[in-house]
Design a protein around this nucleic acid. Structure first.
Length: 440
RNA sequence: GGUCCCAUCGUCUAGUGGUUAGGACGCGGCCCUCUCAAGGCUGCAACACGAGUUCAAAUCUCGUUGGGAUCACCA
């Protein structure tokens, strides 16, 4: 039994977004669950659009999300390998040159569709004469190359889609090398998957048709065909949410206070029959992974829903998960947590308890009274109730009229955690001064 | 248009011939309560359409409609 290995292969042509993240997540989770390895592969064959900046940002996002990788490769460093295989397959006639221009291909495609025919490449290039080629070269045209699909039924068992099959005759020979000699996605990807021993490929279902062609490619280069899992694509309110159009960046989400694990919990469960609920460790999420629970239709991704889920996530976040990021005690965290929107909000409450607050005075008669009967420390758990009972009795106020002015004086805010929990944290000195209207 | 896939509450889904069509999120109400949260209880709400098979169809078959993917010198 060979070792399980998956890969995440972004092209550094943009920032990490929700679509990317979902693919990376499922791969990472699968590796984790099966005890396999997760590899990062930079698919930078497109010189024109690949940028170091994007690559760095991608790494940073991956780390933030918690997807550690144990191995890394970059396609631009492997051209010699691709070239060797290319030459071999050209010699075999499996890869062949074509001289059509993009415009010509476009026209052919349109014409075929208009006639109700399949818009697949007509393989005219297979019938070029010496004269044709001489003529193209004389015109200064450079060839691009296609991979020749062998006729027959191509089939595989997909982890999420079950048995899949395509008739090669109905597919177009994929272009794998551009006119300028640079490689397109398919060919290098298959070579790498084969060379690096990738056992499982988890990706969006926009790749299903590609899979048929790639299976023949794996065979042509003498590689082992991996197991595939094609995830239904996410859709948004405005239709599809492809990885290209995916506009919701991970960095933006992070800046807004959305937790990495909230994103992961949400994406891992969206479209499954499991409830979307907080997971506070990726390991635990991985154990719950089950492709059989994935639906086959395309779930809607709603940013608002994610944000909503995130606040729920934060409000029940265990101290263990935040103790390295926040500067408060476990008790403080647990008391204030249900009132937070984002983790950073904890600072607000820490400041209210420990730094200066300018009180808002609503009923000085009441707050003066409250200050005068505020018992000296040490306090115990009953102090607050005892104190408030005295204020209540002597003022004749109760309910909101009683609590609200005290809350405003103590915290300057309309709402927040229970005053009972806040008071001991504020302490006698600050509490007394604030009740008297002084900044403290 | 060829090929492939999909269709159950607003959303994500369970369901594999006989169910009061279940759950989760959201939404409404109630309780708790000084507030906002949190928590507890409760309610509303769905089988795209049309034929067929069958004693019986959300479930099987065919068709229709509606979505999506792909057919790129993007990945």
């Amino acid at each position: 039994m060979s070792e399980i290995k998956v890969r995440f292969a972004p092209s550094p042509t943009g920032f990490m977004h929700i679509g990317n993240t979902r693919t990376a997540l499922f791969n990472w989770l699968l590796a984790k669950k099966l005890g396999g390895k997760f590899m990062l592969r930079i698919d930078d064959t497109d010189f024109a659009r690949s940028k170091k900046e994007y690559e760095d940002a991608m790494r940073e996002s991956l780390k933030w999300l918690g997807f550690e990788w144990s191995e890394e490769a970059r396609q631009s460093a492997r051209f010699a390998r691709y070239d060797a295989l290319r030459d071999k397959l050209i010699a075999q006639g499996r890869i062949y040159p074509c001289y059509d221009t993009p415009e010509e291909l476009q026209i052919k495609r349109k014409r075929a569709m208009a006639k109700g025919m399949a818009p697949i490449y007509d393989r005219q290039a297979l019938h070029y004469t010496q004269e044709d080629i001489a003529k193209f070269e004389a015109e200064g045209r450079k060839p691009h190359y296609r991979f020749k699909l062998n006729p027959g039924i191509i089939e595989w068992e997909d982890i999420v889609r079950g048995h899949c099959q395509y008739d090669a005759e109905k597919l177009s020979d994929p272009i794998i090398i551009r006119e300028d000699g640079s490689y397109l996605y398919h060919f290098p990807s298959c070579i790498d998957d084969s060379d690096f021993g990738i056992t499982h490929i988890v990706r969006g279902e926009d790749h299903v048709t590609n899979t048929a062609a790639q299976i023949q490619m794996f065979e042509a280069i003498g590689g082992k065909v991996p197991t595939f899992a094609h995830l239904p694509l996410l859709t948004g309110v405005e239709g599809k949410l492809s990885k290209r159009l995916g506009s919701l960046g991970v960095r933006e989400l992070r800046a807004e206070g959305v937790e990495a694990l909230a994103i992961c919990s949400f994406l891992a469960k969206l479209g499954t029959s499991d409830a979307i609920e907080p997971y506070y460790s990726l390991d635990e999420l991985a154990q719950s992974l089950d492709f059989a629970k994935l639906g086959r239709s395309q779930p809607k991704f709603d940013e608002e829903e994610l944000k909503h889920f995130n606040t729920k996530f934060v409000r029940s976040m265990p101290y263990e998960a935040v103790k390295n990021r926040v500067n408060v005690s476990e008790e403080f965290w647990n008391e204030v947590r249900p009132n937070l929107n984002v983790v950073d909000d904890i600072k607000l409450w820490a400041d209210i308890c420990h730094k200066e607050v300018t009180p808002v005075m609503e009923d000085t008669t009441l707050t003066d009274l409250a200050a005068s009967v505020l018992p000296p420390e040490p306090w115990n758990e009953n102090t607050f109730n005892e104190w408030l009972n005295i204020v209540k009795r002597q003022s004749g106020k109760k309910g909101k009229e009683l609590f609200h002015p005290i809350r405003k004086a103590l915290t300057a805010l309309d709402n927040g955690p229970e005053l009972k929990t806040l008071l001991p944290l504020i302490g006698y000195e600050k509490a007394y001064k604030r009740l008297k209207g002084e900044t403290a």
